[in-house]
């Protein structure tokens, strides 16, 4: 445990010094700032007002860009250390592979999770001072979704990182996964549905398996399904399963998926040649 914390502490320090971390923090902090400047929080459109509307937009944008940010920056963590022989040196000290792997994972989790959650808190504080409303359930749900979103993509990234030997291939596969998941969100699914080539069952299943789609549905499930922002698949699921079920599912499923991927990554790390 002592070594696990040591590894994560050093990983955090290393991340904080790196360029990607600045870009990452600026993007999410900047996103919030942008919403204030453009006055998104002031307008009342489509039944949302002030802070709620702003948070909804923030989470919608985050759902699209957070996965690729996490995948690209994290997928290199182990594979780049392996390529540059840093791993060879660091692991020549008496530290167990368990401590090293999970320590890296914990460190990475904090570096990707803290900036987005700070951005959310920032938004809440500013939004509150401006409009005075405090949509607690929404703030709570979105924090939980951000948590499980960071977790699942971190798990996938660590899995790729240990499976693949070269950094280029790791980054390439991370990108492919992101594109693939995006291709199967609402917009694309409706096309398939309209064409009638595939059954509804297939569409519903692929929506429920795709973490990005699950987050989209989870993020809007607090609202009335009659709202136009909701896509047809989300509408259907919300209507049949009910909001509570969907909220629980949208938090728990990605966590389970993240645990599985990171665990398989760990097995690969242990069972394959380290260098």
């Amino acid at each position: 445990m002592k070594n696990l914390l040591l590894v994560s502490y050093l990983d955090i320090k290393e991340s904080i010094r790196s360029k990607w971390f600045y870009v990452y923090s600026i993007v999410f902090g900047g996103l919030m700032a942008l919403f204030f400047i453009t006055g998104i929080s002031d307008s009342a459109v489509m039944g949302f007002t002030g802070l709620s509307r702003m948070l909804l937009i923030f989470i919608q944008v985050t759902i699209i860009i957070l996965p690729i940010f996490i995948l690209i920056t994290t997928v290199k963590s182990i594979s780049a250390d392996r390529e540059s022989n840093v791993l060879e040196y660091m692991l020549s000290f008496p530290i167990s592979l368990k401590d090293y792997y999970w320590g890296k994972m914990l460190g990475r989790f904090l570096t990707v999770f803290l900036p987005v959650i700070f951005a959310l808190i920032l938004g809440v504080i500013f939004g509150f001072t401006k409009s005075g409303d405090m949509p607690w359930s929404m703030i709570f749900l979105y924090s939980a979704l951000l948590f499980s979103m960071c977790f699942v993509f971190l798990g996938i990234a660590f899995f790729i990182s240990t499976m693949v030997k070269s950094t280029d291939i790791a980054i390439g596969s991370a990108f492919m996964i992101w594109i693939f998941l995006l291709a199967f969100i609402d917009i694309a699914l409706i096309g398939l549905m309209l064409q009638g080539r595939v059954g509804d069952g297939f569409i519903i299943t692929s929506a429920l398996l795709n973490p990005i789609e699950v987050f989209r549905i989870g993020a809007i499930s607090l609202f009335d399904p009659e709202l136009t922002v909701i896509g047809p698949v989300a509408y259907y699921l919300l209507d049949t399963l009910g909001a509570t079920m969907l909220i629980v599912y949208s938090f728990v499923y990605p966590i389970v998926l993240g645990v599985l991927f990171s665990y398989f990554g760990f097995i690969a790390f242990k069972k394959k040649d380290l260098l």
């Binding site: 540059s84 022989n85 840093v86 060879e88 040196y89 660091m90 020549s92």
Partner: peptide, 8 residues
């Protein structure tokens, strides 16, 4: 090691 690793 054979080459000093680029530890950050």
């Amino acid at each position: 090691p054979q080459l000093p690793p680029p530890i950050k």
